[in-house]
Write a protein that binds this DNA or RNA. Sequence first.
DNA 1: CGTTAGTTTGAAAGAGATCAAAGGTTGTGG
DNA 2: CCACAACCTTTGATCTCTTTCAAACTAACG
Lengths: 264, 264
Amino acid sequence: MQVTSRDATGTTTDKFNCSVCPVRDHAVCSRCNPEEFEQFKAIRRIRSFSKGAHIMRAGEPMTSVGSLTRGSAYLRRSLEDGRRQMVGLLMPGDFIGRPGRREVAFDIIAGTEVQLCQFRIGDFERILQASPAVSRRLLEMTLDELDAARLWMLVLGRATSRERLTSLFALLVQHDARHMSRKIGISAKIELPFARSDIAEFLGLTIETVSRRFSDLQGDGLIRIEGRRKILIPDYLALIAETGDSESWRHEFHGEVCLSSAVE
Amino acid sequence: MQVTSRDATGTTTDKFNCSVCPVRDHAVCSRCNPEEFEQFKAIRRIRSFSKGAHIMRAGEPMTSVGSLTRGSAYLRRSLEDGRRQMVGLLMPGDFIGRPGRREVAFDIIAGTEVQLCQFRIGDFERILQASPAVSRRLLEMTLDELDAARLWMLVLGRATSRERLTSLFALLVQHDARHMSRKIGISAKIELPFARSDIAEFLGLTIETVSRRFSDLQGDGLIRIEGRRKILIPDYLALIAETGDSESWRHEFHGEVCLSSAVE
DNA sequence: CGTTAGTTTGAAAGAGATCAAAGGTTGTGG
DNA sequence: CCACAACCTTTGATCTCTTTCAAACTAACG
């Protein structure tokens, strides 16, 4: 990897090669011209977080923004008695933070080992003001995330527990397909990026219910649980028939919006 | 009103005076320079829709975008068996449509008599490309909506029916407060922009459950139902204590994000 | 006034949550 | 390499909240 040294907090103190950056072609910086790109290079700071670490915490002042370059993370929000809900999934290339707000609105937790390319918020806002390419790219990404959030609101508001779980699988399959840039086959194997408890938080259910539905779906032959974090989907179409919204999941459209911020 | 004539479909054929436009200071066009503003004037088309009408339908090609200038509308999405969920509330000044996508993702329904200021999508995208002021304003609005959507995901995923209803009331109170630009008092009167069935679709509940919780809250003295579409909240703080997230509702922050696209 | 649509209330059923315990994995130290 | 601890997952039994089905009530409107 490009990180050559690292201090105690996980911040690299020197070089990181943008030209081999895994999100070079779709992050917020992906469409800027060479001089804007140099500005970014000058102010960026590479940091890493270990699995489970809080990248940001709701309520604290927002001091930096940036791109997720490796790993995955999620956005979470809690009620005062501790009930929690995941409200977003962050994958490589996704933007973290909110220009124009001084306070963080959601907890952001590293789901795996994570690498970030961060900018101090003031530095970033200066570039954003000056660069139409950056603000347009960020607009595009934000619109995609908004559609994805709204689509997921339907799942949280109306879907049964079985539908929620199959919807999550469909989302992950499409995600992989897009990321690996290949077609969705009739069968698929997916690596679950979460533990059962994370899945429960994502779906608005308890872990017990999630576990029961896993078993049911396996009993019905719709999935095969292959170890704790891996499942096989023998028939993708049969799976999405259980989501309550198969038409949408079949439709190419979802391939675009359900990814955190996919682009073509 | 400024509309001087109207054809059968509700499209005005001539003048509309932007200088007295009710959303002049916060719509997508609010920050552009005089010449950009002239461009907007040249391509805009004022349309109106009656209560209950579909402004757009999920799946159809997106031919135009624009601003909601009067009335309110909502975004809705359905499962194939007819279960429905509202996924957004549109108030005057809010932007309708999605540059960069050719297909409409959600049903948009007029909640009241509605007036729109529309542009053909191609015309709008041309201005968007050329004008940093417009794309920055749209980015700002979209980021606010994304935060609001995610905040609502917590309600849909985790709140009880009582919490959902009180959260909706809190949202409407804050909305009014912002719109009328006055402080939230200890007591408030709100006009419900929906029927019970709409509230149910918004909250992810059935109308029966909504109705029962209305009665409960009135029994507990937290609200007074004053006619079908009006309620009085004698003690706003007592109300938000029932949301499960009173800290957030008290916090000024929510005054910013829970509005569809408020600006300061 | 009577009709219709919207709202409230009641009783029963169902889905998911909660409480509780047993099974499996993973990791560590002997 | 095995044993044990800690953690995660699955399964079971029961309870609770929301839905469903049904009917009564109320307000608006012709």
